[in-house]
Simulated assay, not measured.
Amino acid sequence: MAKTVVILGGSLGGLHVAHALLKKGDKDLKVVLVTKNTHFYWNLAAVRAIIPGQIKDEDIFKPLESALSRYPAESWELVIGTASAANFDNNTVEVVISADNSSRTFSYDHLVLATGARCPSSTVPWKAMGSYDEAIDNLHTTTARVKDAQSIVVAGAGSTGIEVAGELGYEYGKTKNITLLCSGDQVLGGTSAASAAANELKKLNVNIKYGAFVKESRPNATDKNKTDVVLADGEVILTDVYLPTTGLIPNTEYIPARYLSADPNYRTVLVNDFLQVEGTKNVWACGDVVSKPRAGFFITQKQAASVARNVQAALAGQEPAVAKGPPVDIFACSVGRDRGVGRINDKIKLPSLMVWLAKGRTLALQMIPGYIDGSVA
């Protein structure tokens, strides 16, 4: 009897799993990929795409149809919609279809949760926040605002904030006022790459303001085109463009609460060592919805591969295997278009040239074809 695997999410984790399952060529398996975006979005390059003229839309947005159409038509279905409710007891998931706002119920033998996470602000393009048209419009709007601005404030000194500030400093450090707000006393949470990152930003004329925790942002009362960034200590910074990079919100609202972590502000999916959702036998999760041990590209890749193997094993009546993560914890952060910082296991610092070669030079755009032709899996 034919089996159905429903995958929620068509980004890094979900598409990886879909390819891995479909490449097996099992005629008794159908893969249903549910995603709100018709295109695969290489959001790793969004930090550079906001600089006018650097990256074309077609370089970071690829139609998902082109990724799946290489497989027999009867073996897959691409559903453009958003999961609204999952019932793990009944093996069903409700999906709101984007085209007409109707609702469809999908039954599954196995379910993969790969819906990722979103930015708290809907005005930044670090994640695809909605449909393809919405994502493109958001990116174009941000790029236009960056081009016209004289002052830009980037909030959050984690990896995304460092990369955004670095790209802005590289392009505009001598012509615009670029400020990076860091809530603590060191960028990158004080890891071993912190001082190197700060030094590289200073070379690019980025002003780093420490101890600056953002309380709120609001349109300026006099000029609605400008933004007041209000800090916890009461200071107000007036800027032309405000780019928050702080925090992520897991897209887990459709999942019953008993399968989620207790943190009300960061409700990730609870999984065991097999990346099997706790309390289930046929529901799996990977990527930012798990954030275990942390959110990250290489971690998502490894998790997706493990989930695919375990789903394949379960379909064959075999036991799952413990999920494998990266052999070492590697962190790499580009700082502008010709520099970077990084570390291995928070002890071994990576040379700037090595980080540039591995990431900063292209922001891994050369990896996109693997997600389209399936060679990633």
Rank of each mutant, 00 (worst) to 15 (best):
S75Y: 02
D100Q: 08
P63H: 06
R70F: 01
V79K: 03
G53C: 08
D89Q: 14
A67K: 00
E94I: 00
I80C: 06
S69N: 14
I97A: 02
I51S: 10
T82G: 00
I80W: 00
D57Q: 15
D100W: 07
A46W: 03
W42G: 12
F61N: 11
R70N: 02
V47N: 13
E74S: 14
A67H: 04
Q54S: 13
F61I: 07
S69F: 01
P63V: 08
V96G: 03
A45F: 00
L64H: 05
F88K: 06
E74L: 05
E65I: 12
Y71A: 12
G81K: 04
G81D: 05
D57I: 13
S66N: 14
E65N: 09
E77H: 03
G53S: 10
S98R: 13
A99V: 10
A73G: 02
I50F: 09
I80S: 04
S103D: 10
E74G: 00
N43I: 12
N91T: 04
A85K: 15
S103F: 02
G81Y: 03
V96C: 05
S102K: 11
R70C: 07
A45N: 10
I55N: 07
I55W: 01
S103V: 13
S103E: 13
I97Y: 00
A86H: 01
N91F: 01
A45R: 09
N101H: 09
L68S: 09
A83N: 08
T82F: 03
I97F: 01
A73I: 10
L68W: 02
A83V: 13
N101C: 04
G81L: 03
A73T: 12
I50T: 04
D59C: 01
I50S: 10
T82K: 13
K62C: 09
R70S: 15
P72A: 13
V95F: 04
I97D: 03
E74F: 09
T92Y: 06
S98D: 14
S66R: 13
D59T: 14
V95C: 06
T92S: 15
E65G: 06
V93K: 02
I80A: 02
E58Q: 14
V96R: 13
W42D: 12
A86T: 08
S69E: 15
L78E: 07
P63M: 09
F88A: 12
E77T: 09
E65C: 01
S103M: 10
V47G: 05
S75V: 02
D59G: 04
L44R: 03
I50C: 09
N43M: 14
V47L: 08
D59K: 15
N87K: 02
S103H: 11
L64V: 10
E94V: 05
A49W: 02
I51N: 10
Y71N: 09
W42Y: 14
A49M: 09
S103T: 14
S66P: 00
N90V: 04
Y41H: 13
A45C: 08
V79G: 01
Y41F: 15
S84F: 00
I50K: 12
F61H: 08
N87F: 04
A67T: 07
A86I: 11
S75A: 15
V79M: 01
Y71T: 11
